[in-house]
Design a protein around this nucleic acid. Structure first.
Lengths: 222, 222
DNA sequence: AAAAATGTTATGGCTGACCTTATTATTCCA
DNA sequence: TGGAATAATAAGGTCAGCCATAACATTTTT
């Protein structure tokens, strides 16, 4: 693997794609949203990433990670999630803030430090948000889960992971107790892309569909 | 204290000044050396830092930290050195590499993380290189030490701290056993800014004067 | 099939932190 | 005191990563 210096920005683009795409093709607009930049900026950056062989872009159809890009992205995710573990388990940083702090650290982490950290933490398999941590060799088994947004009325499911990254979103989910391990039941599905109403931890909670997309669950009943 | 985003570069300049100046006036050329940039770039940056009230510059006389600049610098040093402790004590990173890895992390560390880390580490007072760690409020008692470069022939002294930052320099000092806690005896002082010859750990070691400036010692005999 | 929405490209601009080269100012020292 | 060394300033350039605006292409919806 060629050694090259990837900028923080590059890492953020690749990570975003891994987080919200995995293998699939991703709309450039989704990237713009998640990264908080304009679509024009995404287009520019996607071209640069394409030139570096990290992504492959079919105009008007979306963009996806190449093998090389996915390797880099998994590496970034590994660092990110290991730091999340450290910040949460050892530094007792608030759950909703862990992602953003880990994100900064991630970009500044040399491979030696990453592996030493993994050892220190005991090679954890998931981060505090429930997402799997890719192995040092880049291998990565995605969760067998579905987005809560696809759950049917009456369904009870267990939250496996939260794939959101924005601190305010994480804070909201934390307050509403929509956290890994919890069980939620869908008690209402409003029409017209309206919110889901969930029963969780003895309370009813309304959750917008777009937020529900980032809550990954496993059916456990019905 | 006004909240503002200081760039990584700004932090590096201020840290460099704190490391090699403390209170004193520093020649812009020394900054250029340590930061590995041209004197012209230092001039530019010093102007910018001056405009932000972080340093005060008297042309041809040098530059020094303002109160505000020193506060920021101490904060940076605190983060830097706390990470050094973590990397060395917990991740078992090689002594000579700890500085550079900590340096990257430092710029990416939020105040909450800094303080949580300090707590986790048990509020250490010195970093693995022997330098004192400024307190959270910015207070900072410098070492009562002299540079080894000023030691006289025949002098025996104990190394208190190593103020070098370049990994190759640290590696050299590590190999030669010039480390905090060690005792060194000056057995020769070559003329014309020539090297010192030291006796340390049963061996004789030659040390250039400029490197010796970054080894801080306390006289213990003669 | 036309209109609306979405995605892409082109152009030009900005910022921070560097760089080089050349000129000018100051300080130091013999 | 005059030349050498050092420091500062000026002018112009680069690069990444963003921005806005506008034109154009494609896809989706009606």
């Amino acid at each position: 693997m060629t050694i090259m210096h990837l900028s923080e920005s590059t890492e953020m683009y690749l990570k975003a794609m891994a987080e919200l795409g995995g293998q699939d093709v991703i709309a450039t607009a989704r990237l713009a949203e998640r990264l908080n930049v304009t679509p024009v900026s995404v287009s520019e950056m996607v071209r640069r990433l394409g030139e570096q062989g990290l992504v492959s872009h079919t105009p008007y159809k979306g963009v996806h990670l190449t093998k090389k890009g996915r390797e880099v992205a998994c590496n970034v995710l590994r660092r990110q999630r290991l730091w999340e573990c450290f910040l949460y388990d050892h530094l007792k940083i608030d759950w909703s803030q862990v992602y953003e702090f880990a994100c900064s650290l991630e970009h500044a982490t040399a491979p030696e430090v990453t592996e030493a950290l993994a050892g220190f933490l005991g090679n954890p398999q998931t981060c505090p948000r429930g997402n799997p941590i890719p192995a040092a060799d880049g291998s990565f088994k995605p969760l067998d889960a579905m987005p809560l947004s696809e759950a049917k009325l009456g369904q009870t499911a267990q939250v496996l992971a939260v794939n959101a990254t924005a601190t305010d979103v994480l804070k909201y989910l934390q307050e509403k107790n929509i956290l890994p391990g919890r069980e939620v039941t869908v008690i209402e599905v409003a029409p017209m892309q309206g919110p889901l109403t969930l029963h969780v931890g003895g309370k009813d909670v309304a959750l917008g569909l777009s937020m529900a997309e980032f809550v990954l669950v496993k059916k456990i009943k019905n």
